[in-house]
Amino acid sequence: MSKLKYTVNGILKDNPTFVLLLGMCPTLATTSSAINGMSMGLATLFVLVLSNIAISAVAKFIPDKVRIPSYIVIIATFVTLLQFLMQAFLPSIYETLGLFIPLIVVNCIVLGRAEAFANKHTVLESACDGIGIGLGFTIALTVLGLVRELLGNLSAFGWKPVEGDGILVFILAPGAFLVLGYLIVLFKKLTGNN
C-alpha cells in the first residue's frame, strides 16, 4: 500500500509535464490529437517503467563516474525494443509518431527519474514511480491533445459529432505552445501550488 504513494505522487505532485516541466519536445510535437498524445504517453510509460526497473536493479554495480552513459545505453536498449514492438504490432501509430519514438532516449523524464529516483530506491518502488510518472505524462499528453483536437477539429478521440471546421491554428505548431501555457496555469490553480 505504501508503494502506492509513489504512483500517486507521479501523477499529481510530481507531474512531469505540468509541475516538473520535463520532456517538452514530445509533449508539444505529438499532441495534435488526443489519440496521438495518448500513444506517445504510453510509449514513454513503457520505456520509463522498464528502465526504472533495470536501473534500480543494477545501480549498485555501476561505478559512479560512468553512470550517466550506462543509463543512456540501458534506456536506448529499451527504446530500440519498443521500436521493434511498435513496428510489428502498431505500424500506423509508429508512422505517425515517427521521429519522436527514437527520441525517447533523450527525453529528460526518463534519464531524470533514473538519476533522481531509480538509483537510490528498490526495484518495486522504482517500478511504482515509473508507472506514476508515466501515467502522469500520459494523462497530461491526452488532455493537451484532447483540448487541441476539440478546438482545432471539433472532435474528441477521432469522434466528430458536429460538422464544420475548428480553429486550425490549435492543431498547428503555435497552438501547442498556447494550449500548454494555459493548461499549466490551470493545473497550478486547481492543485493550489504556485
Binding site: A173, Y182, K188
Partner: peptide, 22 residues
C-alpha cells in the same frame, strides 16, 4: 499575472512567435 509568471507566459510568447514564423 502571478499564475502566468515564468514558464506559462514564456510558452504563450513562444506560441505567438511560432505564429509569426508561420
Amino acid at each position: 499575472p502571478k499564475s502566468f509568471k515564468g514558464v506559462p507566459i514564456a510558452l504563450i510568447s513562444a506560441g505567438i512567435m511560432a505564429m509569426a514564423f508561420m
